[in-house]
Amino acid sequence: MTTGNASTPSVPLQHIAAAISGAVFAFLVLPILVVVPLSFTAGELLVLPAPGFSLRWYELFFTDQRWLLASRNSLIVGVLATLAATALGTLAAIGLWLGSFRGRGLLLAVLALPLAVPAIISALALYFAFSAVGLANSLAGLVLGHTVLAAPVVVVTVLAQLRMVDRALLQAATSLGAGPVRLFRRVLLPLILPGVASGAVFAFATSFDDLMVALFLAGPGQFTLPREMYAGLREQLSPTICAAATVLVLVSGLLLGLSEVLRRRDGAGKGDPYS
């Protein structure tokens, strides 16, 4: 494409685009990274350059009762919601893949609905419903809410993986006498495992990053990390919040890395996932 052909965009134009892209990438990444040096400040104020290096805010983050409780809640809710969403989402994706019934498209749209509805509407609806049955202000309510919001992500991811599975393999296994459970465990699951794992990573990120549902459904005893951070921002801005944000960025980076590794090992990375 860069063979100096007349059709190739002129070189100045490419330079302009490169300059714009560089500025945009800096705009996207730098604000996120700015919390990192601020979290290591020795002072109380959020100014750069920081007056000195210190780990005191991390010490606070990892010893303070409120932050500890929030981390614990985030982990418990994240893990449980991920397990539930991955199991239910995978089963449903297989059902959608195997089935060829009327209303299949509609069912897929309904199952994917939580992805499309704005977070505040989902949170409001869950708040009304869960208040009526005593699930508001409980970890169980949060797990249930996050499962509903995360499961569609798993369905979509696993369904994409299933489309690459050769159905003849299933017929072969069946004709050799494999029952449905063995068929699933020995044939289908190994084939779609990368998709299931990717779905689980997405599901965990959905739960771990959620603020809206926690805002409506969590009482002080169920505060998750984002909820505690939001409360901190509204009360008093302290470098502890930067420490918490840094930890969250780190977790996001890990999850992104994990999802990239899964996609590449799967071989699907050869194609272009965004086209």
């Binding site: 990444v29 604000p31 996120i32 700015v34 999850l255």
Partner: peptide, 28 residues
């Protein structure tokens, strides 16, 4: 694309927090 995906994966709250801190009167 990874440079694009890191912000994409970072939660909205964390990104807004970053701007909240950056844009303070005595901020960065």
């Amino acid at each position: 694309l990874l440079l694009l995906l890191l912000p994409f994966w970072t939660s909205v709250l964390v990104r807004t927090t970053a701007w909240f801190i950056l844009l303070q009167r005595e901020g960065v």
